[in-house]
Design a protein around this nucleic acid. Structure first.
Length: 481
RNA sequence: CGGGGCGUGGCGCAGCGGUAGCGCACCUGGUUUGGGACCAGGGGGUCCCCGGUUCAAAUCCGGGCGCCCCGACCA
């Protein structure tokens, strides 16, 4: 039976943006704050981020990097040394001009990213080819002054990791950039169940100061693209500007090649939009703060009875590593508990009630598709890890199906136009990567962007869909957040 | 930065000259519990701010401030 509308969230199909905000606030992932454009990540949302963080941090360490921490502030003189970089970030930098009651002699930027200060410090520390490679990472918050913000996707302050490395050769930096993009792909696909398309950004979309930028792009369930991780080959642009030089193997003075790569809390927005439905979040088990919710169906006067006994048994028998919780809240009926945990995206629900218990069974319901089964209480706890793996796979498969269904091939601008007439899609087609053709694409379909030049596809001599000259790439075209 | 809209308990709104109300949420007690319960009681608001008009302003007038939505720019 339909309840008062205030208990429900806006249906996705009715208004995707409102659905998105409703889900985040009702599931208590995050909220607005008194600070314009800045959000607060609430415990449930932060637990989701922490699980994501842990998975990525392990990969960062496994690939040989170490964590460290740099200052929040960057002196103006430092920030401006790399021309393209400053120009790119200038409109988004927040400045500190006063400390206590005293005017500062030099403005301090609140870091929008840390390349510049890291270069300044490593200038002191890199002297020899033996000091290379430098492989470091920091988890930090950064500030980019945004005119228009959206929870998780674009806020003035956000949280991320930024990796920074220095290498002897261009090729080593290239390999690093590839490796880390691979980690991001693994995180997105294996942990967050979001299939992604990887590739290189066009000149207009690359990081300010980079030689080139790679990214992974995921499809949200409305067909829009979300860039969920980026990896930049910085060449020697910064190391020359910041005068990081070292003595090489042949005793000549050299500039190292540099990379940087980042993944932010934005990816949480991706998880929400990629998987969620009208009932709320659908979280992949590997990162879900609560993986299994046990709902006891209490009967009046049976405190300590068989229902509670079964709940306790599940708690005790759940294999370590399974994040299981029993919802013992009093005064809330089971239906409301179901709705509540569905909203929060918990992958599995175990319903423990007298009726099933009389036959020695419990009911297990999977969030992603509502699939329901009665299983013997005996041994059910041991089966949870397997069921969680299946749920993870089901979420991934569902996202893959969406991506497949809404991907199209195009060969000319007309085809591109037609592809977007019905609904937003991921369109792929031969592309020459000239600024003129990029503009032509943007004009052909409103708000359309070149997401990436796909790493997994070759044009095989097909003509560019913009100019007709032989294309060097297959580009992914989509509307993007 | 251009166009539009809105500021009234925590949230969503109504009231548009006579001193503030509804739904949800919240608190207490009880009955309930296999899909968002019910009954009874209760707490909570300088009606965004400043000024003006009036016997009387949430309501009318002037000026601020804040926020949201739609467009141009962006992880």
């Amino acid at each position: 039976m339909a309840k008062a509308s205030s208990k429900q969230i806006t249906p996705k199909s009715e208004d995707f943006d409102r659905w998105y905000v409703d889900v985040i606030r009702r599931a208590e992932l995050a909220d607005y704050t008194p600070v314009a454009g800045c959000m607060v990540i609430r415990p449930y949302g932060f637990a989701l981020w922490e699980n994501t963080q842990r998975a990525l941090d392990d990969m960062i360490k496994r690939t040989g990097h170490q964590n460290m921490q740099f200052p929040l502030f960057i002196p103006e003189s430092l920030l401006v040394k790399e021309a393209e970089h400053v120009e790119g970030f200038a409109p988004e930098v927040a400045w500190v001009t006063q400390g206590g009651s005293e005017q500062l002699h030099e403005r301090l930027a609140v870091r929008p990213t840390s390349e510049t200060i890291i270069c300044e410090l490593y200038r002191k520390w890199i002297h020899s080819w033996r000091d290379l490679p430098v492989l470091i990472n920091q988890w930090a918050n950064v500030v980019r002054w945004e005119k228009r913000t959206r929870l998780f996707l674009r806020t003035t302050e956000f949280w991320w990791q930024e990796g920074h490395t220095f290498h002897e050769t261009w090729e080593q930096a290239r390999d690093e950039v590839d490796t880390m993009l691979g980690c991001y792909r693994e995180l997105a696909e294996e942990w967050l169940a979001m299939p992604v398309i990887a590739g290189r950004k066009t000149a207009s979309e690359k990081f300010a100061g980079a030689e080139y930028t790679l990214s992974i792009e995921a499809m949200m369930s409305d067909g829009w693209a979300l860039q969920t991780g980026t990896s930049h080959h910085l060449g020697q642009n910064f190391t020359r500007a910041y005068d990081i030089s070292y003595s090489g193997r042949d005793n000549t003075l050299l500039f190292p090649f540099q990379t940087s790569w980042g993944l932010s809390t934005r990816i949480i927005g991706g998880v929400i939009m990629a998987h969620g439905d009208d009932a709320g979040l659908i979280l992949p088990p590997r990162v879900a703060p609560v993986q299994v919710i046990v709902v006891p169906i209490a009967q009046s006067g049976d405190a300590g009875g068989p229902v509670e006994e079964a709940a306790v048994r599940l708690e005790r028998e759940a294999p370590s590593g399974v994040r299981l919780r029993v919802d013992r809240r009093d005064g809330i009926r089971p239906g409301e508990k179901y709705a509540d945990w569905e909203l929060r995206g918990v992958p599995l629900r175990v319903v423990v009630g007298a009726r099933d218990l009389a036959e020695g069974r419990v009911t297990v319901v999977r969030r992603v598709d509502g699939e329901q089964q009665q299983l013997p209480l005996e041994g059910v706890a041991a089966r949870l890890p397997g069921m969680l793996d299946e749920a993870q796979a089901a979420i991934r498969a569902r996202a893959q199906r969406l991506l497949d269904e809404r991907s199209v091939e195009v060969t000319d601008l007309d085809g591109l136009r037609q592809a977007f007439e019905v609904q937003p899609v991921f369109a792929s087609g031969p592309f020459c990567d000239s600024p003129e053709c990029e503009l032509a694409v943007k004009q052909a379909v409103h708000a359309l962007t070149v997401r990436v030049l796909r790493a997994d596809r070759r044009p095989d001599g097909a003509p560019c869909l913009g100019c007709g000259r032989p294309a060097d790439h297959v580009a992914l075209f989509a509307r993007a957040y």
